[in-house]
Write a protein that binds this DNA or RNA. Sequence first.
DNA 1: ACCTGAACACCGTTCAAGT
DNA 2: ACCTGAACACCGTTCAAGT
Lengths: 242, 242
Amino acid sequence: VYGTVSAQGPTRARLDRDAVARTALELADREGLAALSMRRLADALGVGTMTLYGYFRTKEDLLDAVIDAGYADFEPPPPSSSFRDAARELIFAARAVLQRHPALVEIRGAQPTVRQRAYRITEAAVGALMDAGFTPDEAARAFRVLFDYVFGYALVNPHAPSDELRREAHASLVALPPEEFPALTSMAAEMAEAVGGGDQFEYGLERILDGLEARLALSASATTASAGAPAARRRRTGRRAR
Amino acid sequence: VYGTVSAQGPTRARLDRDAVARTALELADREGLAALSMRRLADALGVGTMTLYGYFRTKEDLLDAVIDAGYADFEPPPPSSSFRDAARELIFAARAVLQRHPALVEIRGAQPTVRQRAYRITEAAVGALMDAGFTPDEAARAFRVLFDYVFGYALVNPHAPSDELRREAHASLVALPPEEFPALTSMAAEMAEAVGGGDQFEYGLERILDGLEARLALSASATTASAGAPAARRRRTGRRAR
DNA sequence: ACCTGAACACCGTTCAAGT
DNA sequence: ACCTGAACACCGTTCAAGT
């Protein structure tokens, strides 16, 4: 007696690709990518397993949509006046997405990502870098350093820093044989702090920004000498770049 | 008629944990982590599937040994006189391991790594950093930046740079709508180069080293002002650190 | 003691049958 | 037209039987 009002089953919203993908993302974030099976996802949605194949040709197709759903959460920060602030805000926003959706990092390990929404981060970042005076070539390279760092940090440190992580790291370090690991065993406390410490990400980001700023100063003075003021790309809010 | 001399089956070396782990690593590197199943591995070794459980309690146990087998390939470079050279050599050696064994990156995405052989890289790196004058706290943090960068690079760019990669990246960039991605579409060539270019890794490493060197100069002068010469840790070849 | 086939509870996906 | 159960070729692992 198919009722008209009451919702039966775990989830009874009208299904479409996006709704399925969002539920899949939630499942993978919560229990890990390995827990995301077509059968479990169908159960969570209250439909038969094969119903999912009406929305996605294969599981790979579903994972693409999951990536898209994850990057939809990226919110470009408001433009900042200084290069330093703009870059910092952007990288923090990018890290926030990967932290909220660890599944994105897990999936990236299995296949390259070329989803349009993922490129929104790239667009915002290279835009900011060129606004700061980087040439297109340098902006592309600088972006990749920052991006690789954020991904690497997320991969190596998938969980938020915690006392428990610190304790575990410390325990595994002091268990090493000192003859073979003289430095590590002598500085186990400092290493454990760097593994599970709350401001390690910021430390690394500041060092990279130092390096990029030094590079910018160099190339800016070179540009000034040969062709006047640096770049002066139209503001990001403008429609056409260059 | 069980012969005494001739080898039958795909592999007929005496089996032990290490031999099994090395075959598993080879399989995962060649065909991806997903291809490494207990059944396929047993076939490759010419034994019954359940035989493997005589060497490893679970698949997770096997993967730990696979990680260990991968990091066994790390060869610490000879000590260099300058901080810059030492760090560069070390990071290149670390990247070489991850490039030869992409399975290490794939596995890391699924679970944290705490294998003794993996710590050899850490030991060599923090040793070099402290030799250069970093305090234990700064050495731990600086190491993590470099380490996260190497891992991030390996995760984002699992294949060696190639013309094909560059072409694919370029194609997906120029396909983006210019109104939404003004910067990216205007610099597609530069971005494609940074994705598949041969010296992108080096570019990023140099920027990070610039940032770390600046930091070292700062803390060294602070140390000099307050306590004389910087650190002067005993050479890494010495047994006791501090 | 060592090795391993059968079996169980899972996968992704094809195919044909239900409405 | 849409949905989905049965079935197939895979998983990791337990258990009991083979030598």
